[in-house]
Design a protein around this nucleic acid. Sequence first.
DNA 1: GGAAAGACCGCACACGTTTTCCGTCGTTGA
DNA 2: TCAACGACGGAAAACGTGTGCGGTCTTTCC
Lengths: 327, 327
Amino acid sequence: MNRPGVRMVDVAALAGVSAGTASKALSNTGQLSQETRDRVRRAAATLGFTPDARGRALSSGRTYTVALLTTDSSGRFSIPIMRGVEDVLSAGELATVLCDTRDDPLREQTYLRSLVARGVDGIVVTGRRTEPRARIDVPLPVVYALAASTDPADASVIVDDAAGAAATITHLLRLGRTRIAHITGPAHHRSAAERAQAVATTAGTALCGEPLYGDWSERWGRQATDLVLRQHPDAISCGSDQIARGVCDRLRELGHSVPEDIAVTGYDNWPVMALASRPPLTSVDLRLEDLGRRAATLLLEAIAGKPHHGVLELPTQLITRESTLGT
Amino acid sequence: MNRPGVRMVDVAALAGVSAGTASKALSNTGQLSQETRDRVRRAAATLGFTPDARGRALSSGRTYTVALLTTDSSGRFSIPIMRGVEDVLSAGELATVLCDTRDDPLREQTYLRSLVARGVDGIVVTGRRTEPRARIDVPLPVVYALAASTDPADASVIVDDAAGAAATITHLLRLGRTRIAHITGPAHHRSAAERAQAVATTAGTALCGEPLYGDWSERWGRQATDLVLRQHPDAISCGSDQIARGVCDRLRELGHSVPEDIAVTGYDNWPVMALASRPPLTSVDLRLEDLGRRAATLLLEAIAGKPHHGVLELPTQLITRESTLGT
DNA sequence: GGAAAGACCGCACACGTTTTCCGTCGTTGA
DNA sequence: TCAACGACGGAAAACGTGTGCGGTCTTTCC
């Protein structure tokens, strides 16, 4: 109850002004002489004054806090996004809090009530899949990242998955590969279907057999390798780094050399997979930090009263490594 | 500025009482008739009232928020710990916010100032390494998790690494293995040194050669396998799942079968490694959620005015899989 | 010299909740 | 019948900051 912290009145007393004046001096508002402003600033510095966020929130209505609401319990996607968000927001003195719903709608509702009750300034919603998701119903600025809102009136920032997949194929074609197979995850995953579609379109006649749908595991990568080898491909484009790593392992076991005999590409640029693979994987980086930065920027503008609408697609980046380039 | 939310006075008006009385009714304090309490509760339910956290914080001094301060940018350790912390705290209506310092002391200081300014009720400090760390200097309850504070007067909860490592050796000995090698991470990492020490002590004469220190990578696991095979071990105990996976890969390449010829154990039970390995790894689960739960419990007690002191070591759990058991 | 204008700062209230203190009413016991 | 007491609920202050409004003092112009 008794907080020993230094308060605005203490600063004001030291500077010989009233609390209201001190507040104006520190927030650069009102009309005060430069001399008074400096005097208050010095007093604040001397006392190590940090304004109490509780009083400020109550008074101004702003809490200088935004929430990152995620369904990605692993943190695989939400952590990089959060870094991007923080980069942008911390510059504006805003704090970021991470809320993991664990993909539980009830938990999500609980979090939302709590966030509204504590008066966060805005919310970034993200997930571990790219499927568009239902909008959240709160009287606050919201930006969707990675997974767009189904409502086009909302602001969403997503990854241009099709372009990313196309980039791997273009890369392979440029290396002179003419028989490209595609192994990816479940057909009902938007990211798998969208990437496969882009692969087929870009590869054209260089596509070798139909895309193989399975799951995102190394095991499936190994299994699918046996199937796909019947088509004698000279390149295998994979829907994820895990699949690609499985493919590389199986190819090595069978005596095929990567990339000389068969080039392999991954997707996601997940370091723990892409770098640990033998050889390291050429992969598509989702630029999740950029995604977070962009989402945060949009959110700031919405908070400032200039909301955006619609879906913004951000480019990916192809990272070339030895699985396509040779040593 | 104008928040449309329903306030305590609205609830009070509907129930025909004053705001103060409504507050008491909802928080089960003061002395009121049961009938009045119920009436206020019904009114609150009708209006969908959620108390504004800003006003509550300012008035009571409690924010019902605790922070998890971590240096683990990957989330590998902090996410499971956070789940445990949330489990305990959400039951008490407390919110948890994750703050990633990115191992930057300046950023840590900034976060601490911010956390004190917003008046969090307490802080759980954690990291990605098990090295004891300097205490943080804040006038708030603090509990250290995973990495203990160097000051024994603080409350810390850590993993009993030695017992975990010993458990793998006991397991191997029980399986009849008599020549056990140990491959682990950098000697200057406390977790590597501590586990190696426990391995040596527990294995006794069954220890085969000196522990091999390197880094935590699969690559090192593969390299070290070649070295260690000169000693003709019938089991290899590894300091991490990544190393163990590298060991398994190399053994398979060389025609040794796991676990028939040589049993292999990992450490950390990191699903993405332990399950993807061929064969899946017997490993030591750190029970990080338990760690988080325990830390949160201690923190709650400290907030309630009953602080604990000293280091609490929590047991690990050996997860047996095919790398030691056969199919 | 007086008045108007402008620069500057203090006063007081607002924000929403919690909590202490006190008043009122009804009941009980002498 | 009166006093004492307990049960109940209201009034108001407190938490710390932000800000609109008005007052004072100086300056300037007629």
